[in-house]
Amino acid sequence: MSGHLFQANNVVAGYRPDLPIIHGVSMHVDAAEMVTIIGPNGAGKSTMIKAIAGVLPISSGSVTLAGKDITRLPTHGMAAASIAYVPQTDNVFTTLTINENLLLGASSLPKAKALEQVGKAYDKFPALKQYRDKKAKVLSGGQRQMLAVARALLTDPHLIMLDEPSAGLSPLMVSDVFARLRELVESGVSVLMVEQNAKAAMAVSHRTYVLAEGRNRVEGVSSALAQDPEVIAIYLGAGGRKR
């Protein structure tokens, strides 16, 4: 079973221990791999990555990253364990400046290293630099997404998880965000993302997991799944109509 960078085995989780939303979901992500999770509403996609990130409690199952068990790690320990998470909404601190948002993302690093990493983030996302001392509430949706990703990358994580990075963005911004993520993967970071925009997400990712009713439904190489009649009928069709 080992060998994968990231592995989740039979994860059971939910908002309350007595009411699980996902009932034993398994998945893995390899180094420099981009993986998408799709599924209908209520399938437990967001719950899954929230549970991995430690935001929701895992009642059974296990999660490992680079061979280390991170199942019971508190949320604040995830950054140090090389796993980053970008929530779908409220993913930046609107009352803090851009620079403070970035400094905060480097909280788990020593101060000198944190400043160095923030400097690098501005190099990677030069568009953020001009807003350095502005409150994040002035940013547009796309800029917020950029800031959230930049913040998540500050700790040089092995794996970055994103909850619907394309939600609420214009089509142009969507392709920009996906291109950015693709660049990340090429630089060696693994990406695990939940997407409603199944077609676009599958077009850029290596593999896809389809969840339904809190369980694994189908999984496979994205390009092959995108041709699968069942997946097209149920998920791609639905996803397409939604937009």
Partner: peptide, 18 residues
């Protein structure tokens, strides 16, 4: 900074390693 962040959004603060 951590206190101000926590005041706005505790979950996001934790996700940020606080």
């Amino acid at each position: 900074l951590a206190m101000r962040a926590l005041a706005e959004n505790p979950t996001l603060a934790r996700v940020n390693g606080i």
